[in-house]
Each structure stands twice: as C-alpha cells, then as structure tokens.
Computed example of a mutant assay.
Amino acid sequence: MSKATRFFAASAFGLSLSASLVFYPSTSQAGNNAGVPTELQGEWRYGRISSIQYQDSYTGRPAAPNGSSDQFQLASNGNYQRRRLIQITTYNCSSNLYIEEKGKVKVEAGLMTFQPSDSVSQGQICNSGRTYSSRNSAKPETYQWSIQTNDHGQQVLVLETTDGQGKAHYGRPQ
C-alpha cells in the first residue's frame, strides 16, 4: 500500500490530522544515508502538560504538573542532539525521567532512525530521594515521518511509531 493510500485509509477510519498538506521524502532523498533532507534540518520541539492539577489536601500546595517534552536538533551531516523529559505526578508522588542523547540520525524511505552514540538518563522516583542515573542506555528508535502544514499555516514534523501506537507533532521554536 502506498504512503498516500495509508494516509487516506487512516483518515477514513476516524484518525484526525490537523493538516492540509503532506510532504514525503523525495526518491533522491530516500536513500541518502550521509545527510538529512533540508526540510528536516534544524530544531524541532514537542511538549504536553496535563490540564489536571493535584493539590495537597493538608498543605494546600499544588503538586508539580504531569507532562512530557522532546526536543532535538538535526544537522545536515546526520548528527543529532536530543533532550526528553517525562514527569508524572499523582497527589504527593512526583516522578521524572530526563534523557539527553546525541548520535546519528538515518533518514530513508519515509523512516527516521535515531542511533544514539552517547546518552545520559537521570530520574527521581516519588519525591523519595531515590534517584536513577545511567550512561549510554538509550536505544535506537525508528519512526515514520512526514512534514505537514497545520491549520495555522505552520509546518509540523509528525513522527509516528512504526507500530502505529504513538504519534507526536513537533513544531519549530518561535
């Protein structure tokens, strides 16, 4: 099934995309292992913060919000730097994980693979003082990608997991 057919088939099954235009990598870029297509180069950001806020019933203080962010920079030569943060808070329990990595990104045939060569992961579990730290534990990740234009006329990079279970829209920093 072609990429365009999959896109329209997905739309027909109730998946809504806030885009009016989709770009796919050209054939000349599809096999380019040494570099990154021009439209992908530069910085991309994704972030989401929960609209639900918890409050400590004894102190009245709000707990830290739930949220995640992912930002990365892609260089023309295939180098990348990426930083991710996940924070989960439920009542008086706040846990977080921060991952910083760099390496090479491989872009071919509508797929983007992050291949980390150096990474640091750090986290905290439930405000307990228990912390987690690890070096070079990040694993390669592959996504299907497309560049779309959202309802506001801005270009966004859509990364979807290869199993179709996750999708994120990344924008350019303002």
Rank of each mutant, 00 (worst) to 15 (best):
N96G: 08
R82F: 03
Y24I: 07
N92H: 09
G103L: 03
N127E: 14
G31V: 00
Y54M: 03
T38H: 02
C126T: 05
R130H: 09
K104D: 05
Y91Q: 08
N77V: 05
R83P: 01
Q148F: 00
I99W: 05
N66C: 12
P116C: 04
E101N: 06
P25E: 15
G78W: 06
D118F: 03
R48L: 12
D56E: 09
E100T: 08
S94W: 02
R61I: 15
V107C: 12
S119T: 01
A109W: 12
G78P: 04
Y46S: 06
S51V: 10
Q55W: 01
M112W: 05
E100A: 12
Q71V: 02
G35E: 09
S50N: 09
Y24H: 11
T113Q: 14
Q122D: 07
S51A: 12
F23R: 15
T131P: 00
A75I: 02
Q124I: 05
R83D: 11
A63L: 09
N127L: 13
C126G: 05
S133W: 11
Y132R: 08
G47S: 15
Y54C: 01
R82H: 03
G35A: 11
S121E: 12
I49P: 00
G110Q: 09
D118Q: 13
P25T: 14
R48D: 11
S137T: 15
R61L: 15
W44P: 00
Q53M: 13
I52M: 11
S119Y: 02
S69G: 13
E101G: 05
G42T: 07
E43T: 15
K104A: 07
A30S: 15
R83C: 07
P25M: 10
K102W: 00
T59C: 02
A64Y: 13
G47W: 10
A63R: 09
Y24D: 12
G103A: 02
A34H: 00
S134F: 09
N96Q: 10
V107T: 14
S146E: 15
A138Y: 11
R130T: 12
Y54S: 07
R82Y: 04
W145R: 12
F23M: 14
R130G: 07
K102Y: 01
K139C: 03
A30L: 10
T89R: 04
R48G: 08
S95Y: 05
L97T: 08
S95V: 04
I88K: 12
I49H: 01
N66H: 06
Q29H: 11
D151H: 10
G110M: 03
S137W: 09
G67W: 06
S95R: 03
S119E: 01
A64P: 04
N150D: 15
S121F: 03
Q29Y: 08
L85S: 13
N92L: 10
E141C: 07
I99L: 15
R83I: 08
W44K: 01
R82D: 02
A63E: 09
G60N: 06
N77G: 03
L97D: 04
Q87F: 05
A30D: 15
S26Q: 10
E108K: 10
I125G: 04
W145E: 13
D70T: 05
N136Q: 06
